[in-house]
Each structure stands twice: as C-alpha cells, then as structure tokens.
Design a protein around this nucleic acid. Sequence first.
DNA 1: TATACGATCTCTAGTAACTAGAGGTTCAAG
DNA 2: CTTGAACCTCTAGTTACTAGAGATCGTATA
Lengths: 138, 138
Amino acid sequence: MFSIGELSRRTKVKVPTIRYYEEMGLLPKAARTSGNQRRYDTAGLERLSFIRHARDLGFSIEAISSLIELQEHPDRSCETAAVIARSQLAEVRAKIKRLKTLEKELSRISKGCNGAGVSEDCYVLASLADHTLCDREH
Amino acid sequence: MFSIGELSRRTKVKVPTIRYYEEMGLLPKAARTSGNQRRYDTAGLERLSFIRHARDLGFSIEAISSLIELQEHPDRSCETAAVIARSQLAEVRAKIKRLKTLEKELSRISKGCNGAGVSEDCYVLASLADHTLCDREH
DNA sequence: TATACGATCTCTAGTAACTAGAGGTTCAAG
DNA sequence: CTTGAACCTCTAGTTACTAGAGATCGTATA
C-alpha cells in the first residue's frame, strides 16, 4: 500500500490529476487510512498506467471510460475497443491533414516578413487582413 | 450600419462569438441604437475578418490581441508580428510531429485487433495496459 | 396604428481536462 | 513530542467558446 504521492512518482501523473480521475470515475474510490489519506496497491498502479498511456495517445476521458468498462468484462466482445481505437486514429489523421495545410500557409506568410520593416507594410498583417492573399483554403 | 446578425452572416462568425470577442477586447465596443442593439460598419467587418482569419490559422486570442495592437500603430516595427507568426509556425510543426508519432502507434495498435474477439484477448486493451508493447516513445 | 415574431439584449452556467491556491490535518522521521 | 513535508477538501481559474433563460427591440404586415 502506498500514498498518492508515491503513485504520482511511479506513474508521472500529478497528484491533483489522480484525484481528478477518481472524481471522474476513471479510478475507483481509493482505500483510506484512518486519517483519511488515500492508499493504493498494484491494481491502482496498473489502472492509472493504463489511463496515462491512453491519454498520451490522445484518447478522451470518455473513451477511456468505455475502454475501462470493457476491461472489467473480459467476456465481452472487444468490438467497442476496436471502434474507439480506429476513430482515434481517424481523428489524429484528420488533425495532421489540417495542420499540414496550416503549416504551408503559415510558412508562406512567415517568409514574406523578416520583421525588419514597419507594421504598416507588414506582410503578416496584410495576409491576415486579406484572405484572398492566401495560396489555398484553410 | 448593420446588425450583429448581418455581421455574423458576412463573416461566418457566430453571434455569441462576436459578443465574446468584444468582451475580450478583440473588437472595440460597438456603437448602439437607441434600443441598445449593436451596429457595425465596414471597419468592424474588416476587423472581424482579420480575427476570423487569424483564428482559422490557429493563433490564440492573446496573439491576435498583440497583432491588432500592432496594426493600430502603423509606424511601429513589425518584429512582433514576425515573431508571433514564426512561433505559431513552430507550434504547428511540433504538433504535426507529435501527431505523426501517435498515428504510427495507433495504427499499429488498431491493426492488431479486428474487434472480432473477446475483450480479455484484445490487443488494443493489452497495448494500452502495457507501454512496453509499444514500438516507440510517445 | 396595432400586432406579431424574429432578432437582439444581458446574465449565468456548461464544455474538456486539468491546474492553482487557501486553509486545515496527518504521517513519519528524529 | 515536535516538526515539516505530504496530504485533505473546496473553490476558482484556464481557453475559446456554446447554450439557455427571460426580457426587450425592430420591422413587416394587417
């Protein structure tokens, strides 16, 4: 049995975040000492590692909730897990696509101004003021 | 002079968002009719188009504030604008990089499970539970 | 001119996923 | 037994909006 601080150190998840996850129902309510402090065992550690890893991969709290529910019913079909993972992947791909468009446009805008001039003639400001100066849609 | 609804239609920025921008100081306080409704002219339209465009490119409200302040002093050096644009570009590039790593990992995880099996043997869940199954850092 | 009705007003609260801070208690080492 | 780090709960703040309630305004039509 170890404290919340120890759990935090082992998982690299901050203490207030652990409490937040408990409140959100991602972590079960922790056992308490007689003085009301939280105590965890390896089950808690594993659960939090799972959450941490999923968050790192960009899964939402809600998605993680579903995944955990599934974990707790080993006999259930894992179709939901597959769907969640695929949709996360699709989202990530969509974000990449959009960001690449932005990157091109920002790079073009940025190249147009070295910061040496005066704001009146600034290409950055002109580009933002007038969308028609843009190469592509975004 | 036109109403907030008309401005919204012309800029594709929602009415509550326009009011929010005014509150945040991105837009100057609008003129009012005797009945307290906001009225705008082409200056307001141009300002909001600028904001909209910058938001589309991912600039934060704070960054846009700085850019607008600069716009209002045409004699000032545009170095700040150049810095803001470059840092936005750097952020976008960093996000792309990170997302590409995630994409590879998610794609790997997703391929390992077709959703046909049972949650106990699910590769998605196993991968999330055990980081050491991962190909790379993320 | 009266009425209807969509547009507008302000204000509060909610979203996601935390983070920060106040004010008070507990644990463990010395 | 004292001390101080770690812990507790609670509230509020972050970003950039969005939603809803309840009231008022503006204008087209009868």
